[in-house]
Amino acid sequence: MRRDYPDNDAPTVQEYFQLQERQRELQQQAKRLIECLLIRHGGAITSYPITDEHGGCGYPVTMLFHGRSGSRNINITHVHLDEMGRLKAGGIDDHDGTIEQRLDIHPEHYAGTLAFLAFALGIHPPES
Rank of each mutant, 00 (worst) to 15 (best):
E53D: 13
R3H: 15
Y59T: 03
H66V: 05
Q20Y: 13
K31M: 11
G43I: 02
N8M: 12
K31W: 12
I105P: 00
N75Q: 08
S71H: 04
M84C: 06
P60S: 12
R72Y: 13
R40M: 08
S69W: 06
I92P: 00
G42L: 10
R86W: 03
Y110A: 11
E25G: 01
L19M: 10
S69E: 10
Q14I: 11
E83S: 06
A118W: 14
Q20C: 03
Q23W: 00
G85H: 10
H124R: 12
Q18R: 07
D93K: 02
R32Q: 15
G97Y: 06
L121R: 08
L37T: 06
Y110F: 15
H109F: 04
H66P: 12
Y16F: 15
R22M: 13
E100T: 03
L38V: 07
L33M: 07
E21D: 14
E21I: 09
E100V: 07
M84P: 08
A120T: 02
A115Y: 03
L81Q: 01
H66Y: 10
N8R: 15
G55E: 08
H66C: 09
M1V: 08
M84A: 09
L64G: 07
F116W: 03
L19Q: 07
G122E: 11
G91Q: 00
L87Y: 04
K88R: 15
S47V: 03
T12N: 10
F17C: 04
L64C: 02
Q14H: 05
G122T: 01
D4C: 03
D82T: 07
Y48T: 14
P125T: 13
R68H: 06
P60W: 00
D82K: 05
G70L: 01
D7Y: 10
G56V: 02
D9P: 01
P11L: 01
L37D: 04
Q101D: 04
G112F: 07
Q20W: 05
I39M: 04
F17L: 02
H106Q: 08
R22G: 07
H106R: 07
G43L: 10
I39K: 06
L38T: 09
S128I: 07
R68T: 12
S71C: 05
T77N: 04
A120I: 00
L117R: 00
I34S: 02
Q28A: 15
F65N: 00
Y59Q: 03
C36R: 11
R40C: 07
L33V: 06
V61D: 02
L81M: 11
G112I: 03
A89L: 07
A111R: 10
G67S: 07
D4G: 09
L87F: 14
P107T: 04
F17Y: 13
R86L: 12
G91F: 02
R72G: 01
R86I: 09
